[in-house]
């Protein structure tokens, strides 16, 4: 199981996966936006997205849970 957390305060620009999706290590899950820069958040493991905590337009804080891959 891998928990994907936010590295910084950011706005959620794009969510590219849904709960139940199969993902590979290195796939882009969501794209954050902070300070006029896009920051892709990548899967750190292969598996199924069991939890997806963010939606487009959300503001997330450093350390917030984005997704769980099982």
């Amino acid at each position: 199981m891998a928990e994907v957390r936010a590295e910084m305060v950011a706005n959620v620009w794009k969510v590219l996966v849904s709960e139940g999706d199969q993902v590979e290590d290195g796939d882009t899950l969501v794209i954050l936006e902070s300070m006029k820069m896009e920051i892709p958040v990548l899967a750190e493991d292969s598996g199924t997205i069991s939890t997806l905590k963010v939606a487009e337009g959300d503001v997330i804080q450093e350390g917030d849970l984005i997704a769980v891959i099982e």
Partner: peptide, 13 residues
Amino acid sequence: YAEDPKRFLPSPG
């Protein structure tokens, strides 16, 4: 800039 000096990623705070 408010960004980390290695990877130059944004660092609000």
